[in-house]
Amino acid sequence: MENTENKKNNSEEELKLSRRNLFAIAGWGGLLTSMAASVGAALRFMFPNVLYEPSPIVKLGKTSDYAEGSITFNESERMFIFRDSTGFKVISAICTHLRCTVNWSEINNRFECPCHGSVFSTDGKVISGPAPKPLEWLHVKASPDKRLVVNKNKVVDKNYSLIV
């Protein structure tokens, strides 16, 4: 009888939160919470909200500047402009492997990446190499002053064409 009563008393004492423990929990809890919040804030700080990057929508030359049947490479915007008998198609020159700029090979009639040897056909499909995806066809339209406007963030189907 005595033993069981002792046990009961002990467990009751364990359950009781002493003033010292309460302050310890509050202190540590406050410290750890504020540290976690600081780390979280520092991590969020590393993601900028405003970017001063060039616009993904770029204005190129006049539609009349491109000869029929020509393939023009725009180095700064990293894209190829195809002018066929009906209109314009624009393909991104950014290799889908590691973002190097692909070259147009006149002899082999295909795109070749100088970095890791990916090869793409005229319609952007991967022929060989480490590239996992075909080259992206980009949305192109004509501005009122008859110039090409390409949206680098807008990927279109390979059959998409700007009819002029």
Binding site: M46, F47, P48, L51, Y52, E53, P54
Partner: peptide
């Protein structure tokens, strides 16, 4: 990639 470059392009950021 975004946090490493501080943006989408290899630039000032």
């Amino acid at each position: 990639r975004f946090v490493l470059l501080g943006g989408n392009t290899v630039d000032q950021g």
